[in-house]
Amino acid sequence: MTRFEWKADYCVGEGKIDAQHEQLFMLANKLVEASDKKDLTACAMHLFRYVHAHFRHEESVMRQVGYPGYAEHYAMHEQQLARLTEISADIHNDRWTSDRIVDFIENWLKVHILKEDVRLAAYLKDHPDTGENSPHAAS
């Protein structure tokens, strides 16, 4: 059963970011569906690497468009990476709980995207010449 469902409401209007967000939902589902410590560890590592790359891309877009909320958004990304590191350590030390992982993912995927990334989406919409169709857009 799919715990986290991708919805069009999560789109921010930048194609690569939206595709990455959708992929993050898939990886989050794999993590919460992992059946043993080996699978859980592999899924957590894959998610962490993907999240890190996604954040760096999103931050690049924000810098390129002169997004005024960049510093705060970057700080939130760093907090999320720190939380993922803590969860990974808990998995390694057999202290993890599926509820903690689900809470983290629900907060991040649903709250962060719907609150913070939607602000970025609005900025990109209001500044279309600096978005993904701009000659200066991140690849």
Rank of each mutant, 00 (worst) to 15 (best):
A44V: 06
Y74L: 12
H73N: 10
A71R: 10
C43I: 00
A42G: 05
R56F: 12
Q64P: 05
P68A: 06
R56V: 14
Y67K: 04
Y70C: 06
H46Q: 13
H77W: 01
V51T: 15
Q64E: 14
A75P: 00
A44T: 13
F48M: 08
A75D: 06
V61D: 03
F55R: 00
A53S: 15
R56M: 15
A75T: 01
V65H: 05
V65T: 15
S60C: 15
Q64C: 13
A75R: 04
H54I: 08
M45S: 13
F48I: 06
C43M: 01
E59H: 01
V61L: 12
H54D: 11
G66Y: 05
V61P: 00
R49H: 13
E59N: 06
Y74W: 11
H46A: 12
A71I: 08
F55E: 01
H52N: 11
Y74N: 08
R49G: 14
Q64F: 07
M62P: 12
A75I: 01
M62D: 07
F48T: 13
E59V: 00
E59K: 01
E72H: 08
V61W: 04
A53Q: 14
A44G: 12
P68R: 03
V65R: 09
E59P: 02
H73K: 02
G66A: 07
V51A: 15
P68G: 05
H52C: 04
Y67W: 03
R56W: 09
F48K: 11
R63Q: 14
H77C: 01
Y50S: 04
Q64L: 13
R49C: 13
Y50G: 04
Y67N: 04
L47C: 04
A44C: 15
E58Y: 10
G69W: 05
F55S: 00
G66T: 07
L47D: 00
Q64T: 13
V51N: 03
G69V: 06
R56E: 15
G69S: 11
C43L: 00
Y50P: 04
F48S: 09
H54G: 08
F48A: 10
G66V: 07
E72N: 09
A75H: 03
F48G: 05
M62A: 12
R63K: 14
H77A: 01
Y67C: 03
V61A: 11
Y70N: 05
V65K: 07
C43Y: 01
V51E: 07
H57Y: 15
